[in-house]
Amino acid sequence: MGRIRSRYGTGIAGWVVLPGFGVCSLLPLAMTFGYAFIHTAFEPRFVGLENFRYLALNRYFLLGSINLLRIGGIILLIGMTLILVTGFLLDQHPRMMRTGIAILVLPLLIPSVSAVTIWKAVFRTNTLLENSDAQVALITLFLWKNAGIGGALFAVALRRLPSELRDAAALDGAGVLRTFLFVLLPNAIGFLFLALVLLVMFFLRIFKESYLLFGQYPSRDVYLLQNYMNNQYLKMNFQYVAASAILIIVAALVIYGFCFLVIRKKEAK
């Protein structure tokens, strides 16, 4: 009886959530798809793949996309390294755990606009000048603000692992580093993946920091797809914004699909 009631409750909850999900997520997504195939928001005639062709041939769209991948790659690489290192260090010094986590999470609470003032003072952020430190400024600001939460998450995950694992590794004569790499890390890999997802999510919202540092048009080396999309929005070219968004969605689906396949293959083994 209880199980039936529980199922009934879950069903009701699902039906309640569904309209909200439809209105808030599916409908905007559908509208975005619609916009991607029309001439302009003001002249909504179907133009097929014309907007995608425009993007494929537009050098600034390509520049923004390449920079997004390049800077994203650098940020993810350094970011994940920092997460591993901070997680490891905090795990080795449990007494520092609370203070360490507080320090790591604090930047996330500081408004970017306050931090930008400091970054502007430290780095040469004028992208009109040749000796600009634009890339370094953007990457360091992002990592300072967002990598800490990943490190904190990973450290907590390591601490939550059963102590028997460490004891067994110690009995087997494994050192600190070996224990970390071959015992703790594989067991906390799920959390590391979560930290990676968080980092990617934060990175896709990097536009705010970029805008605060460099304005609407940064130099070529830090011009991101987000800049392109924002500028097209302000120019009222919503069809290009929508088409760009569709391309990002497709790219995300391809990546997720690939990961899914890899995981399934691994599970099958």
Binding site: N126, T127, L129, F214, G215, Q216, Y217
Partner: peptide
């Protein structure tokens, strides 16, 4: 024209 921080352009002009 391009919404650049005014100070940046001034620095370039000064340079």
């Amino acid at each position: 024209y391009d919404g650049r921080p005014y100070q940046d352009w001034l620095e370039l002009l000064d340079a």
